[in-house]
Nucleic acid binder design. Structure first.
Lengths: 163, 163
DNA sequence: CGAATTTATCATATTCGTATGATGTTCGCC
DNA sequence: GGCGAACATCATACGAATATGATAAATTCG
């Protein structure tokens, strides 16, 4: 039950990137340090998010990952979709013939619950997360910042455009 | 997302057994035929359900699986628990420190959704499934019955106690 | 241009859920 | 008791998700 490990990493990574939106790209190394995930596997995950149109990647020095769109245009479903099919509802017992027309014994009761879950992922946006809990957002910022401090990034603080 | 393959098999199997409650035990072979699942793996799954106190198994001829308790005393969570930890809520992003006291950026919004899901599995009972959709229940009965007819079980119809 | 930096990608390993086949164990019945 | 039916269990295999390490490709900057 619940999300796969990769989908969780993806959500966490997108939050890390979103927190630094308008401050230039965030590197894989920094995200890996902040989330504790494996670096190269994370790279693959982030690349998939870029292909999905959620992130934008730039290579070379000063490179990294940024949001591809405005935070309020990115739903959690978009972030999770490449790794975990949260959109397509399936029969709780795996019956292939189960549908609204030919419901299994659990279908009706489960449908109303599944609808709530799907609605959550579809309607919750990255912007919603950012505005929801300032303390958690600051914690994410700090995780990235300490990673930068450790590695003495040349461009520390100089790329910032907004704050 | 959603249930593991094994948990789905378990749900389906319990439904098959429940449909024949009071009609004597149902054999693994019959359940496998009805669900299309692999026989020995199903055996293992059913055994786990027996250990969990959901089913009762008897060996030898006339053996098979029965419900261990009354259908209204068995929740879907009990059926799923041995295979899929649906009870323990986890942080959507995998943060180990995430809790009500130290919520992550998604925690609060997600909690209310997760509560609905957990409540569903905790409060929906096997009896509820049986009473919910007579046509689906009949379909399950027939799947087992045709399996019996194919194998010409000696005790066909002779064990029935109620209907 | 050349060196440094960073993402992209490939080949391979590990782990876990799932599945298979063979064999052991218990039970009912003659 | 002995035979056959049924669950129990073990050894093994397969595949997908996850992870690792090495290498390629792109970009910046001096």
């Amino acid at each position: 039950m619940w999300l796969s490990s990769t989908a969780r990493q993806a959500l966490h990574a997108v939050l890390c990137v979103a927190v630094f939106d308008d401050d230039g790209p965030v590197r894989v190394e920094e995200i890996a340090a902040a989330t504790g995930g494996p670096r190269n596997y994370l790279s693959k995950t982030l690349h998939a998010l870029a292909r999905a149109g959620v992130l934008r990647s730039t290579r070379g020095p000063t490179g990294g990952f940024q949001l591809a769109e405005s935070p309020d245009a990115i739903s959690l479903e978009q972030v999770i979709a490449p790794f975990d099919a949260v959109g397509e509802r399936r029969c709780l017992m795996g019956l292939p013939s189960c549908s609204d027309a030919h419901p299994c014994a659990i279908h009706d009761r489960w449908s109303s619950v599944a609808t709530v879950v799907e609605k959550f992922f579809r309607e919750t946006t990255v912007a919603g997360l950012l505005s929801g809990n300032p303390r958690a957002v600051n914690a994410a910022r700090n995780a990235i910042l300490t990673s930068r401090r450790r590695n003495r990034r040349k461009s520390d603080g100089s790329i910032k455009r907004k704050t």
